[in-house]
Design a protein around this nucleic acid. Structure first.
Length: 332
DNA sequence: TTCCCGGACT
DNA sequence: AGTCCGGGAA
């Protein structure tokens, strides 16, 4: 694997080339948090702008919460941004990132995977790094028949047996690169794979059958309303509660998200709300269909901030609300 | 369009 | 086991 990595590694903004000194732990940490549940191509531009704007733990720790949340807009899983900031403040206070897996694991936003990845990549420690790519590669290599997520302990144990003492960081990145470029979910390029001769799934002729996954249940459908209230060229925005869905993000006012269309329930004020379109959005555990309603705010006293409509792109709104804005702009 | 993919926290 | 999004492939 290490030999393959030396010749085939991906060059990414947060990486050092094979054999070179490890990258700045700050950059490794930020990239790994951004890469949680998120693909490399999506992360790249965010990583570049974030490290340019906040080049160190100290710089990020000093940032305003609202600026950090707005800069994360569009990346999703917004708890990551709150944890990132909380973690930066802890690290800035104590002086440096811990260099052990256990120390890292104790920080906000760092779970088993991220602790192992940072320990190996930034600090050269031997750690068993298992992300979704590694899960796929290892479950094929050993033809693990047990279904995910129950198979996780077996996959971790198998990964442990093939993790080297030296260059554990390069090994982890090699496995991830192999999973992303060769041992892909569909259409794996087994003819290019350095593990082919050892791969039980390849020998069985069924690489795509692994990893086995447990059946998932259907998502419920919910309905809601997004309110576009305008006054003097400005639109009403609110800040969502820190906990829960889209937590801490700037947003359009919304009513409840329920089993049938709530109409104007939960509107920021009583008015002649007019429906102008529908926006759909999939969350992890339910699908949401929202009516977009508009009204003139007049002199209604309301909570929130009045944001210039011409600058709405700078408000840092999650994708659900960005779609609603596209509907509003399409109506103009 | 629809389907599928991916870690942390509680 | 349930709660947290957004993008790419089919």
């Amino acid at each position: 694997m290490l030999d393959w990595y030396d010749r085939n590694h991906r060059s990414l903004p947060w990486r050092s080339p094979p054999g070179a000194p490890p990258p700045d732990p700050y950059r490794v940490w930020m990239s790994e948090v951004m890469l949680q549940q998120t693909q490399v191509a999506t992360v790249r531009p965010y990583f570049l702008s974030w490290t340019a704007r906040w080049p160190s733990f100290a710089a990020l720790a000093a940032a305003a919460d609202a600026d950090v949340m707005a800069a994360w807009a569009g990346l999703g899983y917004y708890a990551r941004a709150r944890n990132l900031l909380a973690c930066a403040r802890v690290v800035a206070e104590r002086g440096a990132l811990p260099d052990t897996e256990a120390g890292l694991r104790a920080l906000p936003g760092i779970g088993d995977y991220t602790a192992a990845a940072i320990a190996a990549i930034a600090f050269g420690r031997r750690a068993v790094v298992v992300d979704a790519n590694v899960e796929r590669v290892v479950s094929r290599l050993f033809a693990i028949a047990q279904a995910l997520p129950a198979a996780r302990p077996a996959i971790r144990a198998a990964t442990d047996t093939i993790t080297p003492d030296d260059r554990a960081g390069d090994f982890a990145q090699a496995m991830m690169d192999l999973g992303s470029m060769v041992c892909t979910v569909r259409g794996p390029r087994c003819l290019l794979c350095p593990l082919r001769d050892d791969c039980a799934a390849f020998q069985a002729g069924t690489p795509e059958a692994f990893p086995v996954k447990a059946a998932k249940k259907a998502k419920p459908q919910r309905y809601g309303t997004l309110f576009w209230a305008e006054r003097d060229g400005r639109v009403l925005l609110v800040r969502r509660p820190d906990k829960g869905l889209l937590g801490g993000m700037r947003a359009l006012p919304t009513g409840p998200w329920v089993d049938s269309d709530p109409g104007t329930a939960g509107a920021p004020f009583a008015a002649d709300w007019r429906s102008i379109g529908l926006v759909r959005h999939g969350f992890t555990h339910f699908d949401l269909a929202c009516t977009v309603m508009v009204a003139d705010a007049g002199d209604e006293p309301v909570q929130g901030e009045w944001w210039p409509v011409a600058e709405i792109a700078d408000a840092g709104l999650p994708t659900l609300f960005a779609r609603a804005i596209a509907v509003v702009e399409g109506m103009r």
